[in-house]
Design a protein around this nucleic acid. Structure first.
Lengths: 192, 192
DNA sequence: TTCATTTCTTAACTTGGGTTAACGTTTAGT
DNA sequence: ACTAAACGTTAACCCAAGTTAAGAAATGAA
């Protein structure tokens, strides 16, 4: 149950066994069905989530249409950082795309850990920095690449997304509509 | 010289006079001509910059073309956070768009301040969080809005950009080309 | 003030994504 | 294994942004 999160945390900071056990004792396990939401817009994001198994996607509702922001897989973390930090309602929705098992880390617990085990502050900072770099990479993809380049790059860099995520969500993530992605796929096939 | 930065820092953390004087004693002043670069791609960003007067823009070179990422004005901070944190070469170029006066805060100085005056850690975290929220807002603008909506929103939310920045840089920032921005402006005028 | 440079607009044409709707395929859940 | 729901592709048409090039206007540096 806690093997994966232990590996990930160890890659950030060194904890001895008692510290780690104390940490895991504060986690909650959550099982999600396909399409089940953990966070809806308007709610405050007061947890962060570690993915043991399955995958998540977050999306915005824009004029009644879903705009996909990102996908997360095993060993990934998710929180709506904006809402989490500010305590303001989130404008994101987050749902499971497969049967998913999460470890839930409430903000109150992490805030307490910052004080009780100061090493966790470094962990918090590194997670935040990773979040920043992640969104910057996505932004650069949008600003520097054409939709076709984005798709080709996704195949190369994140094959998991291609394999496990339905095409219309991928289209939305790439900033285009499903028929466009179909045409791009056809164009790529024709040019081979 | 240090009046503006004092106000901004005070809005984040409380410093007494000696602490603040110690801080400012570590700052360098830098004057830039219009179009002068402070950072070019390939260099490591090992300073952060506070703008006393003037404005900055950062951009990427993509296939020989400039893609504008953001504008910064008086009392704003700039650093290429990715390069600053990782120590890796930046892919950003940053230039002054007007005669500009900067206060330069070297990374080594801030790192030392984290240790000597722990209150500065909070300052560092808040700056990082602000950077994250800033880029997320930009990303949401790109994913949720049409170019025309982006321009109308810019007029409303950041009139300084409209007033002080040449149109072709604004176009690039909005993710479009100058003729498109001209057409959008015409469309808006015609519908009034 | 002058003049080179930068900036903005416009026009004509191209390109590629959006829209809608239909159809066929795949998949999840029972 | 069956069925309803979800998903992917295609076609026809529309429309906005890209491209290129030309010329006008604004601006900054001397």
């Amino acid at each position: 149950m806690y093997g994966q999160i232990e590996k990930v945390i160890s890659s950030f900071i060194d904890l001895d066994k008692s510290e780690f056990d104390y940490f895991t004792s504060k986690l909650q396990v959550k099982h999600l069905k396909r399409k089940e939401l953990i966070l809806s817009e308007g709610q405050v994001c007061s947890n962060s989530y570690f993915i043991n198994k399955g995958c998540l996607r977050y999306f915005y509702n824009v004029n009644g249409e879903e705009v996909t922001g990102q996908f997360f897989f095993e060993n990934g973390w998710y929180a709506d950082f904006g809402s989490y930090l500010s305590g303001k309602p989130s404008d994101q929705n987050i749902e499971a795309l497969e049967k998913t098992e999460l470890l839930v880390l409430p903000k109150a617990v992490l805030d307490k850990l910052f004080i009780e085990i100061p090493k966790f502050e470094k962990f918090g900072r590194l997670i935040a920095e990773k979040a920043f770099l992640g969104i910057r990479q996505y932004t650069e993809m949008l600003t520097k690449q054409t939709p076709e380049e984005r798709y080709l790059n996704l195949i190369k860099e994140r094959p998991k997304v291609i394999e496990r995520i339905p095409q219309h969500y991928i289209a939305s993530y790439l900033g285009i509509k499903p028929p466009s992605l179909s045409r791009i796929r056809k164009r790529i096939l024709d040019n081979k």
